[in-house]
């Protein structure tokens, strides 16, 4: 967590391989990423990382199910398999009964859950959520946080949540504080 402008989102973009660092190196799951080409980065994002955005970023023309299935398209899976896995992911976030709805037929909390299902569908090792509750009322935000914590208990999924909201941060088992582009430890002290 950190105040706005402290570099949280930039760090997240770097970890998510959407941006390249000017200095230093990023190792993802032990793989150095500095020398990878654009296509290889895209493949890594597709297989290792799931993104959840503050603005959901669902495609308005597609049903919830097809929105969730979208990342698998770039893995070259057939349509039937994609939809089966997407239905599974929707079930995990508790929206199995909303599969055929379009995003504009869903509430904000439901949309974010669809987006989380989309992030989960490729079975990533890392889930990056940038202010996932920023556009939600406190009830829905609570709901989403509970979902994240439940998913985190599944072994294998690391969840990184970016937030400036102390209430959200308080529920996370581990906190990393940022200020002015620097990473501090949980207590707000620069690590030595």
């Amino acid at each position: 967590m950190g105040a706005s402008g402290s570099g949280k989102t930039t760090l997240m973009n770097l970890i998510g391989l959407l941006d390249r660092p000017c200095h230093g190196q990023i190792h993802l799951n032990g793989v150095p990423t500095a020398n990878l080409r654009d296509d290889a980065l895209a493949t890594l994002r597709n297989r290792q990382i799931g993104f959840v955005f503050q603005a959901f970023h669902l495609l308005p023309r597609l049903s919830a199910l097809d929105n969730v299935a979208l990342p698998l398209l770039y893995r070259g899976l057939g349509k039937r398999l994609r939809r089966a896995r997407a239905a599974e992911a929707l079930h995990r976030v508790g929206l199995a009964d909303r599969a055929s709805h379009r995003p504009d037929e869903l509430s904000g909390g439901q949309r974010q859950r669809v987006a989380i299902a989309r992030a989960l569908v490729g079975a990533p090792t890392l889930l990056l959520a940038d202010e996932p509750t920023g556009n939600l009322d406190s009830w829905a935000a609570d709901d989403i946080m509970a979902l994240f914590l439940a998913l985190n208990r599944d072994p294998g999924v690391t969840i990184l949540i970016v937030t400036h909201d102390p209430a959200v941060a308080a529920r996370c088992p581990r906190r990393i504080v940022m200020r002015d582009g620097r990473v501090l430890d949980g207590a707000g002290v620069l690590p030595s």
């Binding site: 959407l18 895209a42 493949t43 970023h57 979208l70 893995r75």
Partner: peptide, 15 residues
Amino acid sequence: REIGLRRAIGARRRD
């Protein structure tokens, strides 16, 4: 935004 999203979830440039 759609293009950005597709790129984020693993679409290559050629996709």
